Simulated assay, not measured.
Amino acid sequence: MDQPSSVPTPPEPEEQAGEIFGPTNWQPYERRRFLSTCVTMIISGLSGYAAHPYLVGNRRQEFAAFLEEKWQDLNNPRQRKNRPLHATNDLNEDRRFTNTPSRFRPITLDQDGLAYQSFLYSLNLCHIKPIELLRPHFKTLGNVNNHLPPRELWKNIAPTLRVADALREKLNAPLISINSAFRSTAYNSACPGAAPQSYHTRNMALDLVYACSPEKVFAAAQALRSQGLFKGGIGVYSSFTHIDTRGRNAEWGSTPKIAKA
């Protein structure tokens, strides 16, 4: 009697799954998904970068200052408490940063500069960092270099800094830069339009740029002055606002809305 023909055994489920979803068919899908994820992340990152200034203001200056302080902390672990910088006082001698915009260059300080930096930290300002005040003292006009104020004038800037700090709070707008703080007599003479007896030479004045119009800063400073926070001068210009604590009120401006005094 003939033996019954054997019936072919169906493949195991694992083998079927391997044929349908195995590596040969799975890899193209994985590549497409990976590329799609990368493109999505790039688009999201660019969109976030573009929208950031409109959502929370331009914080690039503050972020650069934060990174600079952290970098200096890493380079000087034993003196991290005071966050010291390099022990020289001439930015032009540091050729590593000649192609870097001045507002992002690491500033360099001698021992008096480090002491002035510690003094600024002791003021415990809420928003203004010492590095933001230190930068204007390393500017150059022609062949004239500015420098840090002498020790006997250090305390003069404290009231004006507190006004600038209060303005930052009232405006709810970032401080972009301090264009000018103390000016040496020679440097002040080189500044176009500077008064010979400018309060900058007494370390009592600041030229401030906030992330809003100078007219808005002027109005906010007037409000703080009327509340008794300070007595001093307020000047509005096309790109910055001048604040000083001279002890008597004065105001002037370069726009028709502000009466000159």
Rank of each mutant, 00 (worst) to 15 (best):
S6E: 11
P8D: 03
P8A: 02
T9E: 05
P13F: 01
Q16C: 11
A17I: 08
A17T: 07
A17K: 07
I20Q: 04
G22I: 00
W26I: 09
E30M: 06
R31K: 12
F34A: 13
T37E: 11
I42W: 09
I43H: 07
G45N: 08
G48P: 04
A50W: 15
A51K: 12
P53Q: 02
N58D: 11
E69D: 15
P77D: 07
P77A: 07
R78F: 15
N89I: 05
N92W: 13
P101S: 15
P101H: 14
G113R: 00
G113T: 09
L114V: 07
A115Y: 05
A115V: 10
A115S: 15
Y116M: 08
L120G: 01
L125M: 13
L125R: 08
E132Q: 14
L133C: 01
L134T: 03
R135V: 05
H137S: 07
H137K: 06
F138G: 00
T140E: 14
T140P: 02
T140I: 12
L141Y: 06
G142W: 03
G142F: 03
N145I: 07
N146L: 03
H147P: 04
H147F: 12
P150T: 07
W154Y: 10
N156H: 11
I157G: 00
A158I: 06
R162W: 07
R162K: 15
R162T: 05
V163Q: 00
A166G: 09
R168D: 03
I178Y: 00
N179D: 15
S180W: 02
A181G: 14
S184G: 13
N188S: 09
S198M: 11
H200V: 00
T201A: 05
L206N: 00
V209N: 02
Y210E: 00
A211L: 05
S213H: 08
F218N: 04
A219I: 09
A220M: 04
A221L: 03
L224P: 01
L224R: 06
L224I: 10
R225C: 03
S226Y: 10
Q227D: 15
G235V: 08
Y237N: 04
G247N: 05
W252H: 06
W252L: 10
W252P: 01
S254M: 14
P256F: 05
K257Q: 10
A259R: 08
